[in-house]
Nucleic acid binder design. Structure first.
Lengths: 206, 206
DNA sequence: CAGCCGTTATATCGGATCGATACGTCGGGA
DNA sequence: TCCCGACGTATCGATCCGATATAACGGCTG
């Protein structure tokens, strides 16, 4: 799951871990906080799988941990800084051909099963890489899932009305309202998909 | 975190694991799905800590309905291990005095730090166990957190407008709107707290 | 009534993830 | 100068999740 997000970001541009994390949290939202404790192992997995590779951060410096010539190394680093702020021990990752393949696999895979919220948000963020029909299927599956969730939430409010205090009930109601709005938001997206599809057909017939 | 939820549910009534899971998902919402793979270890931890204890499930005095000698062997095996179980192997858990203490600790603890969404939802669901001032503090800290999150989200939309395609931008905007609604919802809750507090004072002065 | 299936129920395993922490560089302000 | 905060990589232990195993039970159908 995290692999998909990483590959999707790296498709746009090469980045190093720290910047990648910031980009991730602002793309897939701060709700799903990605920690370094999962980001770096995920990058290592991807690199082992040949999906990404670490490229030199400009100026082919080798990561030599020599302590004897530390002064010379530092001096070299300082001499080189200026173009892209501080080219020190950064490891910049780039996506490979295998990485593009893996991205397509992950984006399509298991999009036909009850996915969780994060999975949907992630897939939607990269929906431009999906063919139009898969995009529409994604949205409609999500809609059905939310409708079911809403029904369950309402029934659980109804069934346990007397067992809940004000705070818990208020929480459940707020959540149901949020789900309702999500559904109508999805309806908008679905309508937009249909509109785009129709205008596409119009263009084709002319 | 999960311990807090378990203890909060068990404060109301004794339950066995399976029912506890259902109660959890309907109380703290299906968004934060609790799996058995975390529930049972958490119950084991709580039992080891003396916060909960397995009580005898009310059995219909029909402990061995199984066929042949195999059933007897299984029953004997279970008896040898000394498990507290009913006729169908249920383990009903009840909260202890230490459990009530632990619940109070967990509910109060680290409520003064930038907690995550699940932490807040959980604490709000059990807000009735908090003193009024702590309740208000919880709500206002949450509000401040959401305001900050909204500002960050908006700025990230603004800063990366050209880098995002329609889907990603739409996602971010939808999220910002949801955060706005969460904030106004919190405002309602805070106002309700003040109203309750005032009516309480009114009662005291009369 | 035999066979099958869905629900109830406990439990464990491997892998993914998180939060904290360590270690180190760098620029800026007291 | 010296400390603080931002940048940057990395790892550890605990926890959490999804899948899976096991098994008794109720209901339904042929």
């Amino acid at each position: 799951m995290l692999e998909l997000a990483i590959l999707g970001i790296l498709k746009d541009q090469e980045l190093h871990g720290y910047e990648l994390k910031k980009r991730l949290t602002e793309t897939i939202g701060p709700l799903t906080s990605v920690s370094f404790g999962s980001l770096y192992p995920a990058l290592a997995r991807l690199e082992a799988a040949g999906a990404v590779k670490a490229v030199e951060a400009h100026t082919g410096t080798k990561p030599i941990p020599m302590t004897g010539s530390l002064g010379a190394e530092v001096a070299a680093f300082r001499a080189r800084r200026g173009a892209v702020r501080g080219s020190r021990g950064k490891k910049v990752y780039g996506i490979t051909g295998r990485g593009h393949e893996l991205f397509a696999e992950l984006l399509t895979a298991s999009s036909h099963s009850p996915e969780d919220d994060r999975g949907f948000n992630l897939r939607l963020a990269f929906a431009r890489y999906l063919p139009p029909d898969a995009r529409l299927g994604l949205l409609e599956r999500r809609r059905a899932q939310l409708v079911e969730r809403l029904a369950k939430g309402r029934s659980s409010i109804r069934s346990s009305r007397d067992r809940l205090d004000n705070y818990a009930r208020c929480l459940l109601e707020h959540r149901s309202e949020a789900t309702e709005r999500d559904i109508s938001w999805l309806d908008q997206l679905i309508a937009a998909e249909f509109a785009a599809s129709n205008s596409q057909k119009q263009k084709e017939t002319t």
